[in-house]
Design a protein around this nucleic acid. Structure first.
Lengths: 162, 162
DNA sequence: CCTTGACTTGGAGTCGACTTCAAGTTATAG
DNA sequence: CTATAACTTGAAGTCGACTCCAAGTCAAGG
């Protein structure tokens, strides 16, 4: 085994995409545990810590408020979730949230595709293969699309006269 | 045709899940157009407006700041996107964002599933069919799961001694 | 006529999440 | 020996998105 590699706050910021200030802030509000210091007082971070910060960044992308992250960080850090039933519940419940968030996002993607397709359709009304073109434009495969959910309200307004 | 149905701000709030205050606030910052008023000055809303508000709610769920929504609302309202190239670009670029957001979310779902599975696994170590059970617990089909992305950092810390 | 309820307005206050600031320490380079 | 850079601290400031407030209007009920 090699002795644990460690990083400065700057390196950590670079690796995680979270600014130094923000990392210190997270420590201040105890979202992160107090980082180890060297003799000179400078913080040092390990892979492990970087991973925790990455997890925060990831949860942030899901729109989770910092306060709600605490239990997740606990789980990530050391706790075995199954030992704490309320944690298990928290996890499953947040999972539901996220799944429904994905649905929301997918809806927006569909909205955008629809709009894009619509414009394209109007433009070169009569000859081009729509899907082929769309795929080319987006790079995305887009296997099925258009969620069953009430997508209605996204485009109506476009045609309803004002 | 029936004459357009209309709603009070209260009804609108109920239908959209956005509070009256917030709706007024959106109008104040001109995210929503000034609503029509009746003789007494009360706002009235149509299906069309409700749909716009729903779109805002939906975009909000994707974490989009209000300011960034303006162009989307324009598109939704009346503009043909293809007529404004910068709008098309905006749409495609935000589409990319969302797709990557979905990936982030999926990552978190995978993280949760992993944690849950892990706990379950430790618990009744030796006999149960994991996937079957998991599916039952979640209700979700979960056809493939575990995105290829660096999921590593999610669980390492769990086993790395502290 | 007075009250209740559903609204109106402008403005002030709150809250989460940073972000910036001022002042200080320590390490290396010229 | 000084200056630059990389950090430290605590506190204050900012910004987006509400959220609440006070004062007022109007319509219907008792």
């Amino acid at each position: 085994m090699k002795e644990e590699q460690s990083y400065t706050i700057k390196q950590t910021a670079e690796q995680t995409g979270i600014t130094e200030d923000t990392i210190r802030y997270y420590e201040k509000i105890a979202l992160l545990p107090r980082a180890e210091r060297k003799e000179n007082g400078h913080r040092i971070y390990r892979k492990e810590d970087i991973n925790t910060i990455r997890l925060i960044a990831c949860l942030k992308k899901t729109g989770m408020p910092l306060e709600e992250m605490r239990p997740f960080l606990a789980v990530s850090a050391d706790t075995d979730p199954a030992e704490y039933p309320e944690l298990v519940e928290l996890l499953t419940s947040h999972r539901k949230n996220i799944v429904s968030q994905i649905a929301s996002l997918q809806q927006v993607v569909d909205f955008i595709d629809m709009k894009l397709e619509e414009g394209r359709y109007r433009r070169d009304c009569l000859d081009v293969d729509l899907d082929g073109l769309l795929e080319k434009r987006m790079g995305e495969p887009k296997p099925k699309s258009v969620s069953p959910v009430e997508l209605s309200y996204f485009s109506v307004s476009a045609k309803a006269g004002r």
